[in-house]
Design a protein around this nucleic acid. Sequence first.
DNA 1: ATTCGCAAAGTTTTT
DNA 2: CTTTGCGAAT
Length: 782
Amino acid sequence: MPFETPPFESNPGSRLNLADLNPAQREAVETIEGPLLILAGPGSGKTRVITHRVAHMLEQGIPAHSIAALTFTNKAAGEMRDRLALLAPGQQVWSGTFHRFCSRLLRAYAGFVGLTENFTIYDTSDAKKLLKQAIEAAEVDLRHYSPDSLGQAISNLKSQGVGHDQFTPPVGNPLLHLAARVYPHYQRLLQSANGVDFDDLLLYAVQLLRENPELREQLDRRYAYMMVDEYQDTNRVQYQLIRLLNHTLQNLAVTGDPDQSIYGWRGANINNILDFEKDYRGVKVVRLEQNYRSTKSILAVADQLISNNTRRKAKQLLTDNSQGEPVSLVAYPDPQFEARDIAESISVAIRSGKRRPRDFAIFYRTNALSRSLETSLRNAAIPYQIVQGLEFYQRREIKDLIAYLHLLNNERDAVAFERVINVPARKIGDKTVEKLRAYAHSKRLSLLGAARVAGLVDSISKSVAAKISQFVAMFDRIGEARDRDVGEIIRRVLTETKYREWLVEDASEEGYERAANVDELVSACDEFDLQHPNDGGLEAFLEQAALVNDTDAWESDSDFVTLLTIHSSKGLEFPVVYIVGLEDGLIPHERSSTNDEELEEERRLLFVGITRAEQQLQLSRCLSRFRRNGVWPCIASRFLMELPREIMNCFEPAKSDPWSDQGDGFEPDLESVDPWLEDGFSSDEVKESPPRLKSSTTTAFPRLVTAAELEKKQDELNAIRLHPDRFQVGMQVEHPEYGVGQIVELSGSGLKRVATVDFPLLGKRRFRLSHSNLQPAGSDSH
DNA sequence: ATTCGCAAAGTTTTT
DNA sequence: CTTTGCGAAT
């Protein structure tokens, strides 16, 4: 029997020491055979358990190639690989994301699902182009729904494991009826382009295993031991995949925490983990409840918050860590203030020598919230890295160039063809492409194939056909480099297309910036070549580019403050964490508060954020925020009311807060906003002097907002709220210094609402209503 | 037929 | 404040 090898000699380089583990952890590590459910609370050493478990399996003589570990993100897979390299040097255990696993599988068996091995993986924006064509082809009436919502619907179907030919829409759901009509067209377009979207990777893999039992059995045995991380975030297809691969041999270990399930919106089914014990027979359940990460103060807040969820298995968070400092809860006047204050406290802590930049992280609900934080950190000269800002691979110039590579790798790639055919501009426009598309469709050719014979297309003029031939000739010259290093290929693309020259043609600043990005892409290609001397090549690079995102580029080793969404903070930990924007409409997000289930997911999201913090945590919100066309008052997140505020440091407005605490339903008065008036704010009369930041190093989060400042800001908000339309153009107003004048213009909105007043003696002056003492002339001032 | 310029509208979370 | 869509000019 292969598994009875004595542990000592099989792996002499091992650093494995099970004595480092607590009893529950050890039990998980030592359970190798059969289904195992590891319920791991935050900070309970889950990664440690997983890696030790694999190392232990290897010590027991289980061959590395029969172990596969599926993770949720590349980041998690990478971390596991790194830690395993320390515990069990030189052992090649497969670890990666679901999508990568499926992609690998499909490359090997592409023919079974109607693809060839060089298929293209489309990201969401590429897929959207095909979706739009599909919508046209299906001739559906899209008056009531956006293409995006249709795409969402189809994506949801796919993640439920529903194929394009298996779906009957339920009666009375118009969106799904549309989806049912568009879905087959969309799928046909993907197939003819030899492409897949993200969901297809999983769906096709399941289809492949279902239709080929002998292959399923073979793979089941090949990966005799499987581990799945973040099992609470798996969706239906992922669940099916796991079942298919663990049918014969059920040596399956899943880890997860129902309280950290935050991907319901993309089809994750929390029942997958709640029902694990029903799905597999003889499941061993191990609970890791001891928290090694956070202080008692932080855990108390997290615990109190999550206890408001009803759909959960009650669980205590225990720690032997110290009490630590109380969690701070701060209300700031506005996001700029919030950002400045946070940057200031970080700066103070760094300068005092107590902390380094990498000790800090700032979380927000939506990416858009990162802006003011970036500005403040930059102004404070604090090094920071933003995870998932504007993604590198989403930039236009990068997508353009990668499209050339895609077309090189997969000549049927219609999206890539349409992207590159006229970039740089070659006077081959939409109309021509449409003709090519029609011709290609009728002759069953790819777009590039049609382009090769453009002269045969009647509707295309000779001169345009010549331009197309020129393009094809150029493309084929690039194609000669197809089998070279990726760096060489991309250089070939650049020299042949003169893309870089085209970018800087107009000598615009934007052009140079884009050119710099192009250079960065070239370096990325070279880097890839260096790192993949043997398993490289165009196809591998493209797969990497499609499945690796910027989150994975996050460097935990470098000394930066980290900015990221709460979602992408999962699995990470930081000594000091700030979570900003805790306002109603953000957390819970306005689009996620329609029912209790979504609300509970939002609560879990905040729970995840809170439990990332090791030593210090500050939660903050703003009293007003710039949104759409003006400044709007913000209501505190309802979750804040669920926190144990008596044990927290609260820097909330002193008097009762009309925006949050009374909750008497202030609704922004739409009529007080003039969306058609642009706001001109360069006038010197309109000045904004931010309150000076004070700081002290005595407390964890020095109190930088004084109660007086908050009150003042609030009075301003009140004034606007109570008298949204006190002023009108043509009205006579009185200014304490300048006297009486007439309003000639009103612009801006909210706190930035500005009146231009014409004074008989002084001429025109501009005033910000929220700051000035303008009164309607002759009115009884209060 | 293409390109350029302006206006309008839209803003969650991710593989 | 950004991106997308449409209309006019070349």
